[in-house]
Write a protein that binds this DNA or RNA. Structure first.
Lengths: 336, 336
DNA sequence: TTGAAAGCGATACCAT
DNA sequence: ATGGTATCGCTTTCAA
């Protein structure tokens, strides 16, 4: 069922059929006949052919590691809102371990399928960065990339965010602070570990490997496993920590669940902080003290930058940084 | 940067270039020259042109109302896992109120962009169903569609699920049961309202409009607003309800948060149940009694059905139904 | 093995 | 306003 069929049925040329359907100049008569024919035949234009001819797809791809993470959902909503009804349609691809690497993605999608790409990978790869450098379509990275890569990016120092959380706990008098990190082979995992170590150093607290653990993923499920492992380490009569810094809100929820399940009080026995400042975390009981990574703002900004690059392909590379922001809630004891 | 350029650079014909890159018959010499040229020029094939020629995109689209809902995330993961590494790439489009209607989507994506569509709309529309009937690409609906529409579907009776939750509360001796529903203009909203009413009727409990409220969305944020409204209705000294049935886990979390925030104990003063059986709900404190809608299984099944239709376009329409399953947890008092 | 050329389906230019 | 036709970038017959 192609435009040729519709044109034949309506008794006009394909050119006229095309015009009639895309509402260019066409007589009322032709327009009606063509639209009728299209309806009768159940004609649906082939977007692939149209894109090929037009050289644009009006599609933007948002590629994330795990769309189950509320952080990315917040970004997505902001991106969609920014493009709005008249902008390109945005679709999401997950590029986690299971579902194809970011490189696959950049390959697959590169040209034709989407006009632009917003990419938020958690694992750095030199291959990916190489591909990004010679990217076939406009791209904005939300996250960190090497300075050498010429690509627009929106970043935030999540190591600093972790440090802010840890410092807040220290300021409240907590001294034995545990850390539940995400996977250490990820960029956020690495950065957050450094941020945590740094904050202890500044406070003059000795780092203790027994108090640090990496969850297998930035998910609740992995967090529960990690938290249990943390609580079961060593032989103690008294809990060897009085606070837990979690690498995001999902891990914080898991930590609180496990702590409470083992009979400890949060925040009295163990204070807990998260990262991402999710709505879910603020509704959790106790509500979770969290450092915002400004996901929505970063998403919106990324969309704006992509749009700007569509307009001006030659504009200089732009790298924007946001500042993390602490939101004190009940899980660390509430406002000071 | 097209294949023509690569071919020129390598000093071969486009046909040879194409073969060299798609690994058909080509001499070692040619293959090497072409691949070198491609790398040098930063050539990336245009997927649009390829799809047009091949008549397939190896893409499947998953269209949902709100990917922020853990239920859809569970489906997505199952879909991706089912297609696996060798299957089509799946991308997600949200078709909520803000981001284009499902009809837009079916239009836009219909042909070319994706080989198949898995659609999980929450608002029924005759226009959508009409489009579905004459769908340009294989489609599976997760949710409910009129019997008259000839389309593969995977459904579950969420009204029954709500009834199971309410009946469980009644079995535990709760009698004044409130209901926080999702938006009433959605299909799940309608169905769940009927299921709730039905369960009261069976138990011989009079329905009380003061105890029912619709949240503006199936989200935590909307749930908090609705829960506050519910608690503030009427003038009472004693709480006019001893249980809340929530239309999903997000609304249940919101309800518990608000109840506890107002000084009530869950489940002692108010028992609460959810729907969807999310991981988040099981980690919430108290853990949320919930009726599983088998999101992962439905997602996997939908993917299988789509694959089957790819294989056998003429196979008869298949409609599969799943059964909801109650998971008793702390928010209603735990196991009986 | 290689190259020339047809064609996927739509759009837009150029005549009429 | 309408029709014929080249074209988007790629894959694939068909000959050589």
């Amino acid at each position: 069922m192609t435009l040729v069929d519709v044109a034949a049925q309506a008794g006009v040329s394909v050119s006229s059929a095309s015009r009639a359907l895309t509402d260019k100049s066409a007589s009322v008569d032709v327009r009606e006949r063509v639209q009728l024919a299209a309806r009768e035949l159940g004609y649906v234009p082939d977007s692939t052919a149209r894109s090929l001819k037009l050289g644009a797809s009006r599609q933007v791809l948002f590629a994330v590691d795990d769309i189950g993470n509320p952080n990315y959902v917040a970004m997505l909503r902001a991106i969609e809102r920014t493009f709005g009804y008249t902008g390109p349609r945005v679709s999401v691809a997950t590029v986690g371990r299971d579902s194809g690497t970011p490189v696959d993605l950049v390959e697959a999608v590169s040209r034709g399928r989407a006009d632009g790409l917003i990419l938020s990978p958690i694992r750095r790869s030199s291959l990916l960065e190489e591909r990004l450098s010679s990217s076939a379509i406009p791209t904005v990275v939300i996250g960190s990339v090497s300075e050498s890569v010429q690509v627009d990016s929106v970043r935030i120092d999540s190591g600093k965010a972790i440090a802010i959380a840890a410092e807040h706990l220290i300021a409240r008098g907590r001294r034995r602070i545990a850390f539940i990190n995400g996977p250490s082979d990820t960029n956020p995992g690495e950065v957050r570990a450094r941020g945590f170590a740094q904050s202890l150093r500044v406070a003059g607290i000795a780092a203790d490997p027994m108090l640090e653990i990496s969850a297998a993923d930035f998910t609740v499920g992995a967090g529960v496993v990690a938290a249990h492992a943390l609580f079961e380490r060593g032989n103690y009569t008294e809990l060897p920590f009085d606070a837990i810094v979690a690498a995001n809100d999902l891990l914080a929820m898991a930590a609180i669940n496990v702590a409470v399940g083992r009979g400890f009080r949060v925040p009295d026995d163990v204070a807990v902080t998260g990262l991402d400042d999710t709505e879910l975390g603020s509704v959790f009981i106790p509500s979770i003290t969290s450092v915002s990574l400004r996901a929505a703002e970063r998403g919106a900004r990324a969309a704006q930058m992509l749009e700007a690059r569509f307009q001006h392909p030659q504009r200089p590379i732009e790298r924007v940084a946001f500042e993390p922001e602490l939101h004190v809630r009940a899980s660390c004891g509430g406002a000071l």
